[in-house]
Amino acid sequence: MRPVSTPTEVAEKPDGTAKESTGSSVAFTATLILLVGTALFGRRLFTGWFTAGGIRTWATMFVGVTIQAMPFLVLGVLLSAALTAFVPASFFAKALPRHPALAVPVASASGVVLPGCECASVPVSAALMSRGVTPAAAIAFLLSAPAINPVVLTSTAVAFPGKPQVVIARAVTSLAVSMVLGWLWLLTGKGGSWFKMPKNRHAHDAGKFDVFRSAMLHDFLHAGGFLVIGAAAAATLNVVVPRTWLDHVAGNLLLSVVILGLLAVLLAICSEADAFVAASLSQFSLTARLAFMVVGPIVDVKLIALQAGTFGPKFAVRFAPATFVVALTASLLVGWWLL
């Protein structure tokens, strides 16, 4: 795809509207021909190319993760565009305590209201930041929303029947992790030079609907591209990492917590389903499975790609390990206390 389009984009400079629209229509026509051509002849042209079982399994996983995340991504960009276009910045100033350290727990708790999995929360928290919400609070929201919303807690209760303490432990741990990281953000210099602040996308001359449309278009294309990277990574790891290696580590508590945490990062299962997967990992202790459910919604390969895209790669390489370590520590503590 890139070889077809990039030359046309690079070749012409924005120095004339006539040339612009010609270049634009060339790129458009080329893309259209390519897409329709693939739709009509793709399978015939490439018969015999992708027949290896591993490749087909990979493709199924890759398309599966993408398709699964797509409705949630659309919901997320719809909400974030609506926040950008229709909610005045003054609303958040009034709704959240002025002091950032106090805004963090409020933002964590308000994660309850966003029913969706983690793909939706990245664009929404970026929109919150661009609307003047302090990044610490937006980060707390980013981490708590996919883990403590009613859909996720209900599915956890269904996956662990007769064990309400698992649901409570999950909610408590996820809330604690999101608050700790929000405060950690405030303590460690608020991002310094490595955090890319999502910009305010209010064009001052544009109407609200235009802002909504542009924001949604942009966010979808942007996050969608990174979702594809994340889905490819998750599919690769799913195919490459044999699940049988899990059975050898189940006995050791500390090791099993780390391993299930890593598994959650690698598998990138959406937060509404991870409880069922956790329930099926029955050779592990409840604490290790709690770690799996706490890590999954806040750090996984798909999320790291999305966050790198939204907040910058330099942010992602610091944020993901920090989140991982805090999540494992909190899971161990809460597991020891409640489970």
Binding site: G42, R56, A59, T60, V63, G64, G225, V228, I229
Partner: peptide, 23 residues
């Protein structure tokens, strides 16, 4: 508009060309 958007074509091609089967 972001260039990463071109990546969105990969799943479309995967669907159209490979037609990934059920697991």
């Amino acid at each position: 508009l972001p260039r990463t958007a071109w990546l969105l074509l990969i799943p479309i091609f995967a669907l159209l060309v490979i037609d990934p089967p059920a697991l």
